[in-house]
Design a protein around this nucleic acid. Structure first.
Lengths: 173, 173
DNA sequence: TACATATCATTTGCATGCTAATGATACCGA
DNA sequence: TCGGTATCATTAGCATGCAAATGATATGTA
């Protein structure tokens, strides 16, 4: 049961799929047989919308942030600024990146001399990651831009709506 | 000006960074000098939260969907089911994927024989993409699973909260 | 001490997602 | 018809993001 079938009817009687379903069977939402209503509007699915919103956000981020800072690079540097030296795994946990992803991010930050790493002398498994002085300066200077990115991302929302959104999203992770 | 400095104070007097800033200067939010307040909590930034929520969602998606369907593959197939044959570019626009991304998705769907493509005889530039009969069957069978993915993603929210969230997110893309 | 288990890190492979460069085809106005 | 412009598609390069396999190091216990 696919939307296009309804769209044709829609041309004739000026009703959308949902309304037509209501007319045919307001309780169970089926037509002509017992097939369950599988009407599925991609554009209303939270996952699809989340992808699109995050896409727009990363576009804003790329446009406004200095120093080629990406969301993940910046996140790692902010956490290092806040928490100091961290093992690579711990840095990944703090920034919601798995070990493969955080390794790539750290490698690229090292290539730019924004972070440095050294083995933990007390635990030979650990790579301890910390900001270089250049990295500290870069991330401190980037903070106001990052605030601006957040502002631009939610510019269409009122202050109450902004709080609502963040509270709702926090319940989903 | 980094949070850890406040955290130490916090131990002693039981106040968070925001409250301490209020005490020192409720108007301009600075302490001891004219440096603007750059307090920046990564975990409260909407972009960072969006990434984490979408991450969790894709995890649910991967766990529940059949046929190795990913969010983008499924999105493309749903749009083809709904709208019929589309040019590759148009399919990308309908699913919020740029031309490079949609090409990869289409290539992988073709490799699985879920979609087929042929040049538009009326416009030699266009690759017209459509579902194969196998692809149609796969996506129709996948729809209830996709509904379940959405349900699991927002399981922590009440019905009103779900509507709120979707409405707020739609304002951001 | 020796072994099992856990943790940390690396690597490979696959899948998005973007930009930029390139080439082919349509279309439109002079 | 010609030439400029627009659209469609391909390709290359870089950056996430995940799963799985591998290896090195710690740790706890028999």
């Amino acid at each position: 049961m696919i939307p296009i079938g309804f769209a044709i009817i829609n041309f004739d009687i000026g009703l959308g799929p949902a309304e037509i379903l209501e007319i045919f069977c307001p309780e169970r939402h089926f037509i002509l047989n017992d097939e369950p209503d599988l009407e599925y509007q991609l554009d209303d699915q939270v996952g699809y919308i989340l992808r699109r919103v995050y896409q727009r956000h990363t576009g804003i981020f790329a446009k406004l942030m200095p120093q080629d800072l990406t969301p993940t690079r910046f996140a790692a540097m902010v956490k290092l600024l806040e928490l100091g030296t961290l093992s690579q795994n711990e840095l990944g946990r703090q920034t919601s990146m798995d070990i493969a992803t955080i390794k790539g991010v750290v490698d690229r930050l090292k290539a730019r001399n924004f972070v440095k790493s050294q083995r933990d002398p007390k635990d030979g498994r650990r790579q301890m990651i910390s900001l270089t002085s250049e990295g500290r300066s870069v991330v401190e200077n980037a903070l106001p831009f990052a605030k601006n990115v957040t502002e631009k991302t939610i510019a269409n929302l009122s202050p109450e709506e902004r709080n609502q959104l963040v509270e709702l999203l926090k319940k989903l992770c």
